[in-house]
Simulated assay, not measured.
Amino acid sequence: MITDRPFYTYRQASARVGRHVDTIRKWRRRGLRMTWDEHGRRIVEHEALLTWWRESRERDLRNRGIKSDTPISAEDLL
């Protein structure tokens, strides 16, 4: 598990939030603020990544009709 750090590369960011690297790239194209490090790699700030991830998760739950504070039961999955 990637622990909290100030900045993440694509691979580190994907491991931190449990998403595929391609998802992080898609988020960047959709507006996730990223910058460059001294080695020419794209990096994302910790707070920006987690804010985007939380908002993405909330949108996903709303689209599925699930409130974030509602526990999911086995009947909901059927």
Rank of each mutant, 00 (worst) to 15 (best):
M1I: 10
M1W: 05
I2F: 04
R5V: 12
R5E: 14
P6T: 04
F7L: 15
F7K: 08
Y8M: 06
Y8C: 03
Y10S: 07
Y10P: 06
Y10F: 14
Y10Q: 09
Q12P: 01
Q12K: 04
A13Y: 01
S14I: 09
A15L: 07
A15H: 01
R16N: 04
R19M: 06
H20C: 15
T23L: 11
I24K: 02
I24P: 00
K26N: 13
W27L: 02
R29C: 10
R29A: 14
R29M: 13
G31C: 10
G31Q: 10
R33D: 08
T35N: 02
T35P: 01
W36C: 02
E38K: 09
R41F: 12
R41T: 04
R42T: 07
R42C: 10
R42I: 08
I43L: 02
E45N: 07
A48T: 02
L50H: 03
W53M: 06
E55G: 11
S56H: 07
E58M: 14
E58N: 15
D60R: 10
R62M: 12
N63W: 07
R64N: 13
G65C: 10
G65W: 13
T70Q: 08
S73C: 11
A74G: 14
A74L: 15
L78E: 14
L78K: 14
